[in-house]
Design a protein around this nucleic acid. Structure first.
Length: 497
RNA sequence: GGGCCCGUAGCUCAGCUGGUAGAGCAGCGGCCUUUUAAGCCGUUGGUCCCAGGUUCGAAUCCUGGCGGGCUCACCA
């Protein structure tokens, strides 16, 4: 057994004393009448009234036979004033055995202290949970309305590994995740209002598809077969369109077995939407309306700041075909270039081109290098080369292109969409081209899915599809620099035990 | 995977060119019935990430490893 730390030992001893005093350190319930925020917001009516509140002790100032401390609940903190002659001798003895981190229930009268802080004069104090581990102590002071924090708990490794502590101690972290939840709720409402159906599709898939990425592999014991964790749910949602649903969406956890950095986590969340009888032009309008609506409802404005950059999400967003964007930002016209010429152009631009790259990859590189980082204001990049998009429908005016767009904000794509390919013969050819790439060693090339082709052969109506990266959208709308700051439990290597 | 940086008390951090560790907060003991980074007095607490090496002597220098951050590459 590991040695028990002194601070934990001390708390265990207090726990023992409390039990000896007849206090249940882990009771079953507590009836609370108000949250901290309600007490503050309704102070005028509540002054001198009795309320009950509950929360975790976050500060403690004992002064002989009285004490001030703050408790923190779901939506904030409130100060408790404890006087021995009001709360009683026994409760005061209990109080003396409490620590920062303990969870208590308080019944008492609402009042304002001499310095004007809304507080509760405790008449009853009940221990609701004894905490055995010391919390990082973060002190703060409000000066001119600004919160000054002393010794903030900021070690990223500890914060990510022990997110519960991060959430207790850093209120702004909680805010980010509340916003994440509201972003998803608002998006769901937006889609439901339009009559689209929220559905669920398999996470364990015998054939993975819908994106170009490497999958996680797992094994089904009973069937003794390989299964993949989905990299996308696109092909399943389109099967549902075939089945007669005319608008379906899913908030999907996807899994990609690739590198991690501040924009990538091995598991991440995407919202994918498919709507029958629509094309990508229509989907652009829906996208800009949806994102700006979310910003408006969650943040109260469509003008946001991301990492110091001012961004205006108000529709309409700029539409810019891919080749035009490259002409504009890289100064070269490659709309008619073949692979040989592309190779030369890329080299002239200073890009190291690898022999295995096809023209799609080269174009993507030029775009990623010269264009994408400069697209700060929301922009739809449209009309991608055919070979980069095996599931998108050919462009109605140019068969070398597909009808696809990516919304780009703050230099980063936050989604992907197209007029969905519904010609089963064309789809088969595209899959076959992918298989050839795979044979050449491209591990991210897509896999041919016979059942999906069979579904298309029954006939899928013209359909527009959209995927939005929820994590990236949340980063944008909460001004967080890393995807780890918008995922509660980002992937980490195992802790040494 | 490459480069740079980091790992010292529960938390935040000092510890210069080597002499086996220190502060603030928290904790513990004492005083204090409107404090608020409460205050005053006293005080406990460390496998200096791990393993080797150099040295009379390593938190400090070297090598390797582990974990993390940033970044580049890869990657939607």
């Amino acid at each position: 057994m590991e040695e028990i730390h002194q601070l934990i030992q001390q708390r265990r001893e207090k726990l023992k004393k409390l039990i000896e005093m007849g206090v249940n350190p882990y009771p079953y319930k507590f009836d609370r009448t108000h949250t901290s925020r309600q007490v503050k917001e309704q102070f005028d009516e509540l002054e001198n009234q009795t309320v009950s509140v509950a929360g975790r002790i976050m500060s403690n100032r004992r002064m002989g036979k009285a004490a001030f401390f703050h408790i923190q609940d779901m939506d904030g903190r409130i100060q408790i004033y404890l006087k021995k002659d009001v709360v009683g001798d026994f409760a005061f003895e209990v109080y003396k055995l409490l620590d920062i981190g303990d969870i208590v229930g308080i019944v008492g009268q609402v009042f304002k202290t001499r310095t004007g802080e809304i507080s509760i004069l405790a008449e009853k104090l009940e221990l609701l949970t004894k905490s055995l581990r010391p919390l990082p102590i973060v002190k703060e002071k409000i000066v001119d309305g600004k919160r000054i924090v002393y010794d903030p708990f900021k070690d990223k490794e500890l914060r990510y590994r022990q997110r519960y502590v991060d959430l207790i101690v850093n209120p702004e972290v909680k805010e980010v995740f509340i916003k994440r939840s509201r972003i998803m709720t608002t998006m769901r409402e937006f889609l439901n209002e339009r009559g689209y159906l929220e559905v669920e599709t398999p996470i364990l898939q015998p054939i993975y598809g819908g994106a170009s990425a490497r999958p996680f592999v797992t094994h089904h014991n009973a069937l003794d077969m390989k299964l993949y964790l989905r990299i996308a749910n696109e092909l399943y949602l389109k099967r549902l369109i075939v089945g007669g649903f005319e608008g379906v969406y899913e908030f999907a956890k996807d899994f990609r077995n690739e590198g991690m950095d501040r924009f990538h986590n091995p598991e991440f969340t995407q919202m994918e939407l498919y709507v029958a009888y629509k094309d990508y032009h229509w989907m652009m309008e829906l996208t800009e309306e949806m994102i700006s609506t979310i910003a408006e409802k969650v943040l109260g404005t469509t003008k946001i700041t991301y990492q110091g950059q001012e961004i205006d999400l108000t529709p309409p967003w700029r539409r810019l075909p891919l080749f035009e964007s490259i002409r504009e930002y890289a100064g070269v016209d490659i709309s008619q270039a073949d692979e040989e010429q592309l190779r030369k152009v890329a080299k002239d631009l200073g890009i190291e081109v690898e022999d295995s790259w096809g023209s799609g990859k080269i174009i993507d590189e030029i775009f990623g290098e010269f264009v994408e980082p400069r697209l700060i204001q929301p922009t739809f990049i449209t009309d991608y080369p055919l070979e980069m998009s095996p599931l998108a429908k050919k462009h109605r005016e140019n068969p070398r292109l597909v009808e696809r767009f990516e919304p780009i904000i703050a230099g980063k794509e936050i989604g992907n969409a197209f007029s969905e390919l519904n010609d089963p013969i064309d789809q088969r050819e595209r899959f076959e081209a992918q298989m050839e790439l795979r044979a050449k060693g491209d591990e991210e090339a897509q896999v041919l899915d016979e059942d999906f082709l069979r579904a298309l052969e029954y006939g899928m109506p013209p359909t527009a599809g959209l995927g939005i990266g929820i994590d990236r959208l949340t980063m944008l709308l909460t001004d967080q620099p890393s995807i780890r700051d918008v995922i509660f439990f980002p992937h980490m290597r195992p802790e040494k035990s």
